[in-house]
C-alpha cells in the first residue's frame, strides 16, 4: 500500500475459465490435472462470461485469434472451462479486475488464499497464501518490474536481489527473483514475475503492458520466524501463538 497499490479481493472458487483459460493455459496443460488442482463435485460447473470474451479466448487458444500468435492449436472446449476449481493462484482475480478496469494506470495487489492438490508435509500445504501485484500503464518495462520488486524486497529488509530468466505460461518475458537472507547466509527463491502475454490481454481488451509478480507468503514468514515446518503456521497451537512475538522486524 505504501508503494501505491490498491487491494483487490475475489472468489476462492473459480471457473477453470478464469483460473486457466483466461491466462492462456491450454486445456491439456499438466497443471490442470486432478493431481495438481482441486476440482469441486458440488457445485460442479459454473457459468462462463459474455459470449464475445469467451469466443476471443477460445480463438486465442485454437489459432492465436488476432494477437499474431500461433496459439496452442487444439479444439477448445467450453465445458472444460466451466468446471469449478479452488483457485490455484490469485491471478484469476487480477485478470478479472483488468477486464473491468482497462484505463491506465492500474496498480493493484492481493495477499490471499490459494490451493494445490498436495499432501501436507513440512514444506507443502494444500492451502496457502499468495502475494501478487500488478502495474498496468502505457510505458512500463521489464526493468521497471525489476525496480518495483527491488523496492518491495527492501521494504521487507531484504537488501540483495537478483533476477533470472524463467518461464510462466502467461508472462513473457518472465523472471525469477532470488534474495539474499543474511540469517541463513544463502540465496532464496521468492517471487516469480513477468509481463502478461498479448494472448492473455487481447481477449479482454487490455491495450497496455501489465507487469505482474507473485510468490508464496508462507515462505517469507518461515524465513522471518526462523522455523522450518510450514504446518506450524496453521496448527494454531495456543502456546506457540502466545510465545511468538507480534513484532517481526
Amino acid at each position: 500500500m505504501e508503494m501505491g497499490f490498491t487491494e483487490i479481493r475475489g472468489s476462492i472458487v473459480q471457473t477453470a475459465f478464469w483460473n486457466f483459460d483466461a491466462l492462456f493455459q491450454p486445456q491439456d496443460h499438466p497443471a490442470r490435472d486432478v493431481v495438481d488442482t482441486f476440482y469441486l463435485s458440488h457445485p460442479k460447473k459454473g457459468k462462463l462470461p459474455k459470449k464475445d470474451v469467451v469466443e476471443a479466448v477460445a480463438a486465442t487458444h485454437e489459432n492465436g485469434w488476432k494477437t499474431g500468435s500461433r496459439g496452442w492449436e487444439y479444439p477448445w472446449s467450453p465445458e472444460e472451462a466451466k468446471r469449478l476449481v479452488l483457485r490455484t493462484h490469485t491471478t484469476p482475480e487480477t485478470i478479472h479486475y483488468l477486464f473491468e478496469h482497462k484505463e491506465p494506470p492500474v496498480k493493484v495487489f492481493s495477499v490471499d488464499r490459494v490451493y494445490r492438490n498436495e499432501k501436507l508435509d513440512y514444506k507443502h500445504l494444500a492451502e496457502f497464501h499468495q502475494i501478487e501485484g500488478i502495474i498496468m500503464d502505457e510505458k512500463v518495462t521489464l526493468r521497471d518490474l525489476m525496480g518495483t520488486l527491488t523496492e518491495f524486497y527492501h521494504k521487507l529488509g531484504l537488501e540483495k536481489v537478483q533476477f533470472w530468466p524463467s518461464y510462466f505460461p502467461y508472462t513473457e518475458p518472465s523472471m525469477q527473483s532470488t534474495v539474499y537472507v543474511p540469517e541463513l547466509k544463502t540465496w532464496v527463491e521468492l517471487c516469480g514475475m513477468g509481463i502478461f502475454r498479448p494472448e492473455v490481454l487481447a481477449p479482454f481488451g487490455v491495450k497496455h503492458p501489465v507487469l505482474a509478480w507473485g510468490g508464496g507468503l508462507e515462505r517469507l514468514i518461515l524465513l522471518k520466524l526462523g522455523i522450518d515446518d510450514i504446518r506450524l503456521l496453521y496448527k494454531n497451537d495456543l502456546g506457540w501463538i502466545r510465545r511468538t512475538p507480534v513484532c517481526q522486524r
Binding site: E7, P105, D137, D144, M146, G147, T148, F163
Partner: peptide, 17 residues
Amino acid sequence: LTPTIPATVTTGKQHRV
C-alpha cells in the same frame, strides 16, 4: 539489465473487507 523505477504514480488503498 539494471532496475528502474516506473513513472506510474498512484495512491494505495486497502480493500473495505
